[in-house]
Write a protein that binds this DNA or RNA. Sequence first.
DNA 1: ACAAACTATTTGACTTGTCAAATTGTTTCG
DNA 2: CGAAACAATTTGACAAGTCAAATAGTTTGT
Lengths: 154, 154
Amino acid sequence: MNTQNTSGIRPLSSMVTFRLARLQSSLNAQGTALLKSKSGLSLVEWRIMQSFRMLENASLTEIADLMQMDKGQLSRKIKSMIEKGLLRAETDKDDQRVHHLTLTKKAEKLRSQMLPFMEARQKHLVEDVSDEELKVFFGVLQKIEAASKFRDFE
Amino acid sequence: MNTQNTSGIRPLSSMVTFRLARLQSSLNAQGTALLKSKSGLSLVEWRIMQSFRMLENASLTEIADLMQMDKGQLSRKIKSMIEKGLLRAETDKDDQRVHHLTLTKKAEKLRSQMLPFMEARQKHLVEDVSDEELKVFFGVLQKIEAASKFRDFE
DNA sequence: ACAAACTATTTGACTTGTCAAATTGTTTCG
DNA sequence: CGAAACAATTTGACAAGTCAAATAGTTTGT
């Protein structure tokens, strides 16, 4: 296949990041709108809350690693979520630097209220995608994610 | 297949947005680092510059639509890129509201300097992905993108 | 012609995201 | 032990992203 072309149309592979970035904008807008219409939660707050589904009593660093999120931002967000009564922090008894976080009852309740809508959304997003396609999709996602760690382009 | 489970492991479909968001963080970091190491361009500036590959003499609205980017942000960014000498604006003679934008020589030069690295990166990102997988991947991306426009979850 | 409805862009106020340096606590090892 | 190296978190400064309202120019219908 000819990857050089004069038509102005580029090979698909040169559009990966463009397509992903654009999709991400749309997904953020959709998620934000849905959360706003049914709760007072922001998308970041929701994501932080959801990360406890994967990591119980997680610390800041664990959440940051899981979400690939900046620790500075996370630190401030957690602080505000504690103030809002969504999170509770408990200092690790063996290492006073780390605080284990848990969702409060209030957060649990908000989470169960929103969950049906958020799950419906997830379903909707892939409703025209077959199981086989989805499997390939996640496989590719994983490969791109691994490759996104690479830095030395010379 | 049983989608209800008590193991704490969720069906893949419920992770689409999480996975995409996390990947996006990594890709942004990679792109930003690469641009910074070889030029003074930010990722947004690069993306705006690249959009002229698809849309010649584009207006703000056209770029915003293409990139799913906020018009306010774009307006300010374009202004600063004009000040930096990267873009030139020309008022449409039939509609004075619209300004057609073009890359300056300076921007063209920066673009050609960076392009080999950025293309190498795109290739690297998908180097372990087969053509067939990539095709499926873009197909799924398109379906999710279409579904991301939907708003009425009741 | 001209007001109402539209459209393109800009501006303001605010949230989220990034990067680096500072702070606080822990471990390692001479 | 005690200083240097490490690690977890916080803070500061600033860039990017969002949302709504304002401004400026154009089209439509009468």
